[in-house]
Amino acid sequence: MGLLTIIKKVKAKEREIRLLMVGLDNAGKTTIVKRMNGEDISSISPTLGFNIKSMSFKGFTLNVWDVGGQKTLRSYWRNYYERTDGMIWVIDSADIRRLEDCRDELHKLLVEEKLAGASLLILANKQDISGALSPSEIEKVLQMEKFSSSRHWRILGCSAVTGDGLLDGFDWVVSDIASRIYLFD
């Protein structure tokens, strides 16, 4: 039995997945996690550190690390890369002014060695707001073609307020990770 097989078996027993949720401030990261968990989303304040939340999802335990996106916090993101199975990059699709900022921060993340093997889900949030850019428009701004060959990634539109698109997104990232890490019976 190879080492990789042993690692897979250990992980499969726990069936735990670690997701890192990052993006600029006010993108809606915490709201997405709360919405996924069926919690009240009427009053959510800026995250000034991290929110860790365990959720059951399709037989897996997701440990979601939602880390604050304010400029002063971004230099600390690297402390949360270790053991990350998947990243969820959240974008405020209506905040067109900061889209290039958003792209630059995402590109910094994608060259991090510790995140090299992690699946990437990009959630183009706030699709319910008029004037929001569509996922394909955002994809162009993000210039993802540079990374397409080396990473499993997908961009999807969503709205944390209506809940649209969230399940599709989590479905994709969890099954992508599961097919890489876990052995199916």
Partner: peptide
């Protein structure tokens, strides 16, 4: 293990 905490941060942990 929570791991690293950012200076002056407020953090939450919710587990099942």
């Amino acid at each position: 293990t929570f791991g690293f905490c950012i200076p002056n941060s407020v953090n939450s942990w919710e587990a099942i």
